[in-house]
Write a protein that binds this DNA or RNA. Structure first.
Lengths: 305, 305
DNA sequence: ATCCTTATGCTTGAGTTGAGCATAGGTAAC
DNA sequence: GTTACCTATGCTCAACTCAAGCATAAGGAT
């Protein structure tokens, strides 16, 4: 029967990856100057884990999350110390209001993962070709011959090398590859002179963050979650900028609007918006009904180039 | 800093949804006569949660899992009793060998979810139209008028009513709907005379199982995991039967083979197989290299009808 | 031989997607 | 006020994908 005793007990911790998009920059809520993600213990008084997370994220941000989703449960072995084992249950939360917290609590995603921003003009593309590619090349060459081809293939797939395309949703795989290649300060055998740029976080929080980005980038394509990051009404241009910020990639404008409108994800409010110095744009609002009507309806990424 | 103390401690439990496909029937490993899924406490000596799960599943089945993936972490509030809170971390495991365990440990998926098998000749289609649809209809009518349309829409989407198509991957949504409509014995307000057929399990294990089926049905479409359920070599017909068993749906044969072969998921072994009383089929093996070469490559479901 | 069964190959039409041309309707500079 | 420039929006076209089904192949059973 179910009453069987589980003899050992562990600490349970809730970790939140709360993200928003502000002025075309994706940001994540951090604590203590970006050193870690907000987290807290699961308490007995919490009705459920989601409820526990919701309440104390509201305490911190002053805003209710439009969307919460469980990410992954980690049992970081490095932390199984004297105090016993700790299990971290991580969640992804989306909001459109950054609230009144000091703005340095909201940090740009790409401060932690500069290579993930592949939009033209950003750091990503240069970083990959000038720093990451050569250092991964060295890592490939350092392998025993039998393993060399496997390493090269993995590097090529992750970072779109050798004529392969860049896949935005491989965030976690890229992080783990850099970790294994010791190009990241968290890695045990990392040496300061061979590191790839990017801020670190305490413990395994940067790994948790990368899991969140990966999930969001994947989810956005087949589930209408972007709208949780948008204000009540918005232009299709603003929506596209938001998606591009998350994907770290430019999209084909005309095809993006075709996708959004043909799926009936939005409806016009009747107003227009003329701030951009171009033709005024129609404003739209999200049709919340689609959440009930269908289970698949997303914002695919009609890529450019 | 990370050393912050988490004051309360909880029991941590690993739960496994281990599935295989035997003779065209999808089966799941259970304990104590199908009353619950195999589970066990997370121990300090386990290197990681996956390792812990792997080792004791191997103990139980005598076979190594080809594939293990974390499913979801539940904190069943009903079990937060005197002993304190229990957190269940669930995993999906796939294997192709049912081993030498007594075969009643392996139970047919569809004993627990008869409505999920929509293949012609199985119980599903009749069950939906003759039992589920009318009882859900009553549940819709029982709602306050303002809520009625929302309920109807939800029932229609989940069970493909009102001309909508059946979506195999909505396993969890269907279970939760039946739960809310009190058509399932686990539901608090369920009455014995209005139940939908299907065996129950202890605690929330049937919910965990439905999470597993949902994940597997979704995953199969964009990741080549079916092959973990297949023997070394197989015919395309056998592969199709396996996918159909999981999806609970018939597939268009010619399109299925085109999909599999065009993606280079398999390579011929050169042998043939003549047991079916028809033209002998070529045997194939899975090209394991695709796991490294690509991140997306699945067995989409070329549906029939 | 004839029929039944499963396997395999191929075609066709509908729909989806990537790419880009063309026009609309504003603001800012000259 | 005319020109340049900018973003928004509409539309077309070719390549590709996908559902559906016809046709043929190759075995066993009667």
């Amino acid at each position: 029967m179910m009453g069987r005793v589980t003899r050992e007990r562990v600490g349970a911790e809730l970790v939140a990856v709360v993200t928003a998009v502000v002025a075309g920059r994706p940001v994540v809520l951090t604590a203590e100057g970006g050193q870690h993600l907000p987290f807290g213990p699961l308490r007995t008084e919490h009705h459920s884990m989601q409820a526990g997370l919701q309440t104390w994220v509201e305490q911190q941000t002053g805003h209710r999350l439009g969307y919460v989703e469980q990410l992954y449960t980690f049992a970081d072995p490095d932390r199984a110390s004297a105090a016993g084992r700790v299990v971290s249950i991580s969640y992804l939360g989306l909001t459109n209001a950054v609230g009144d917290r000091p703005s340095d609590a909201w940090r740009d995603w790409y401060a932690f993962f500069p290579w993930e921003d592949q939009r033209v003009g950003s750091a990503g593309p240069g970083l990959v070709t000038e720093v990451i590619e050569p250092r991964l090349g060295a890592w490939v060459e350092a392998a025993p011959p039998a393993e060399r081809e496997a390493r090269r293939l993995r590097a090529d797939v992750c970072f779109g090398l050798g004529g392969r395309g860049w896949s935005p949703e491989l965030v976690l795989q890229r992080y783990e590859l850099l970790y294994e290649a010791a190009l990241i300060p968290e890695a045990p055998s990392a040496t300061p002179d061979r590191l790839v740029p990017g801020e670190r976080m305490a413990g395994d929080h940067r790994r948790i963050l990368s899991t969140g980005l990966a999930r969001l980038r994947a989810k956005i394509q087949y589930h209408p979650v972007v709208f949780e990051l948008m204000p009540e009404s918005f232009t299709l241009g603003q929506l596209q900028v938001t998606v591009e910020a998350l994907a770290g990639q430019a999209l084909h404008k005309q095809n993006f609007r075709r996708l959004v409108t043909q799926q009936d994800l939005v409806e016009p409010t009747g107003e227009t918006h003329a701030e951009t110095g171009g033709r005024p744009a129609r404003m739209y609002r999200f049709r919340r009904a689609v959440l009930d009507e269908r289970q698949v309806a997303g914002t695919k990424l009609p890529r450019t180039r």
